[in-house]
Write a protein that binds this DNA or RNA. Structure first.
Lengths: 195, 195
DNA sequence: CTCCAAAAACTACTCCAGTTGCATTTGTGA
DNA sequence: TCACAAATGCAACTGGAGTAGTTTTTGGAG
């Protein structure tokens, strides 16, 4: 007895084809240009099947989001919190600049704003990201660089928030200096013991 | 000779009716439920007219956004930067909690993520907000509470960013304490001279 | 190898956002 | 007051997103 289908089965092939097509379409046309019909055609899967298993464009994105959540990302470990934090914020910034990652990541944020399921998926995604990133703060506390009263996750949030704010709320450009400044600000607040 | 139509003319009546209907629909159904047809029916204006003058749902929202930009909002003046900043951030937080303002404001953010014109309108909106809010920082500098090297607008951005980040990116709840902490963090960074 | 339940494909629809061409109304300037 | 240009109203249409019912394929269990 088994509780999971074979990885090479038809369903698995369909799932992979649709996921790959979704990402490719997102890169080419962005979130506003993403349609179930296009994904179906590109993947070679019939559109009724896509509707039955994913339900909607937001469902496709939620699915991609769950995949992205489990992928670990390269947390820096330079020896100092300052450069670690800067590294993380720059990673966020350059991620949205990237011609492949950018449209996909932006789509995640956009979709979550319109669909509760996508919002939950994005919430979990960021919870995982925060947990991973907070490691640089925990290390800093161990090294005595920061007081042990600080909340590591909160430091991460405050560090990356200005980048997201500029990109998705105020719609201002984000320079390398802007990102560094955001990281430095979070660090200064942490040192002052307010985070 | 005149370069503007009479305020009581038919066009002006249509414009006002559509604007009011847009806001009412946003409050009742939110951004995802906003359709040109519904706005047309509620306003008593034919849908063709709405399409011709506003073009799309995002056009309706951009229009509402331009109106909101010019409305000044109550910047606190308590005598200390700390409570002024906290007041501003709480104003943001409670604004999105408000059953009337919340859906409208959220719609602005959501629409700007999908339509370049709405994005530009929102950019201008926030530029105006920053400029107004920065007054509390400028006063603090004059009083000697903050070093005069700090960028007032940047302090505001860093102060409010975590609230927007939680609401629209990470999709986490935002408590009163969270808002205060964000304001305090920005202030600590400003005092340290990194903003 | 055979059979069967589940999943996918296919066909043919419905429904609604958005468009087009034309008729009608309106307010404004002469 | 009157005539005209601009704006609105109207009705009919187009196209694509999403659905329903049915048939076909597939992979695995016995």
């Amino acid at each position: 007895m088994e509780f999971r289908k074979r990885p090479g089965g038809r369903s698995a092939r369909v799932r992979d084809a649709v996921r790959q097509a979704t990402l490719a379409e997102l890169v080419e046309r962005g979130y506003t240009g993403l349609t179930v019909d296009n994904v179906a055609e590109r993947s070679g899967v019939h559109k009724t099947t896509v509707y039955r298993r994913w339900g909607s464009v937001e469902g496709l994105i939620s699915d991609a989001l769950e995949l992205a959540r489990d992928e670990p990302w390269p947390i820096p470990d330079t020896g100092s919190v300052e450069s670690d934090l800067r590294g993380i914020v720059q990673l966020v910034r350059t991620g949205f600049d990237d011609p492949e990652l950018g449209p996909v990541s932006s789509a995640f944020v956009a979709a979550a704003m319109q669909d509760p399921a996508a919002a939950r998926a994005l919430h979990d995604f960021f919870a995982a990201r925060h947990e991973q990133s907070a490691e640089v703060v925990r290390r800093a506390i161990e090294r005595g660089e920061l007081p042990d009263v600080v909340d590591p996750n909160e430091v991460i949030r405050v560090a990356v928030a200005p980048v997201y704010y500029r990109l998705f709320v105020a719609h201002e450009p984000v320079s390398e200096d802007d990102a560094d400044r955001a990281a430095d600000a979070a660090l200064a607040a942490a040192r002052a013991g307010v985070l």
